[in-house]
Simulated assay, not measured.
Amino acid sequence: MTAATVTQMKCACSSCVCIVDLSDAIQKDGKYYCSDACANGHPDGAGCSHHGCECHS
Score class of each variant (00 low, 15 high):
13 C>W: 07
15 S>H: 06
44 D>Q: 10
37 A>G: 13
10 K>R: 15
24 D>M: 10
37 A>Y: 03
33 Y>L: 01
2 T>V: 09
42 H>S: 09
34 C>Q: 01
43 P>D: 09
14 S>I: 07
28 K>T: 08
1 M>D: 08
8 Q>T: 15
51 H>W: 04
49 S>Q: 14
35 S>V: 05
32 Y>N: 13
44 D>C: 08
17 V>E: 08
4 A>F: 09
2 T>A: 05
20 V>F: 01
25 A>G: 06
43 P>H: 12
50 H>D: 00
49 S>P: 01
17 V>L: 05
47 G>C: 08
46 A>V: 15
45 G>F: 04
10 K>E: 12
50 H>A: 03
26 I>K: 00
55 C>Y: 00
14 S>A: 12
8 Q>G: 05
26 I>G: 00
48 C>K: 06
7 T>F: 06
51 H>C: 07
51 H>E: 15
23 S>P: 00
40 N>H: 15
53 C>T: 00
38 C>W: 00
28 K>D: 05
30 G>K: 07
25 A>M: 03
12 A>L: 03
31 K>V: 04
54 E>Y: 09
41 G>F: 02
54 E>R: 07
38 C>R: 01
31 K>H: 09
22 L>K: 10
50 H>S: 01
19 I>W: 08
21 D>L: 04
25 A>I: 09
3 A>P: 05
51 H>T: 15
8 Q>I: 06
57 S>M: 10
21 D>Q: 11
34 C>W: 04
33 Y>M: 02
12 A>H: 08
1 M>Y: 02
20 V>P: 00
50 H>N: 08
50 H>I: 08
16 C>R: 02
4 A>D: 14
20 V>C: 00
6 V>H: 03
47 G>N: 07
43 P>T: 13
14 S>Y: 08
54 E>T: 11
16 C>I: 02
3 A>C: 04
19 I>C: 01
40 N>T: 14
34 C>S: 01
54 E>H: 12
29 D>K: 10
30 G>W: 03
34 C>F: 01
30 G>F: 03
48 C>G: 05
38 C>G: 05
16 C>G: 02
48 C>D: 03
10 K>N: 14
37 A>N: 10
49 S>G: 13
43 P>S: 05
52 G>E: 05
10 K>Q: 14
8 Q>L: 10
4 A>L: 13
27 Q>V: 12
19 I>Q: 02
43 P>K: 11
1 M>W: 04
4 A>P: 14
11 C>T: 01
31 K>C: 10
1 M>T: 06
32 Y>M: 07
23 S>A: 15
1 M>L: 07
29 D>G: 06
21 D>I: 07
52 G>C: 00
41 G>R: 06
53 C>K: 02
37 A>C: 14
36 D>K: 13
34 C>N: 00
45 G>W: 06
7 T>S: 13
38 C>N: 01
47 G>S: 12
27 Q>H: 07
45 G>S: 06
47 G>M: 03
19 I>P: 00
14 S>E: 09
2 T>N: 10
29 D>H: 11
42 H>Y: 03
11 C>M: 02
30 G>L: 09
8 Q>R: 15
31 K>N: 09
7 T>C: 06
40 N>C: 12
6 V>L: 13
49 S>L: 10
33 Y>G: 00
2 T>Q: 08
8 Q>P: 02
22 L>H: 07
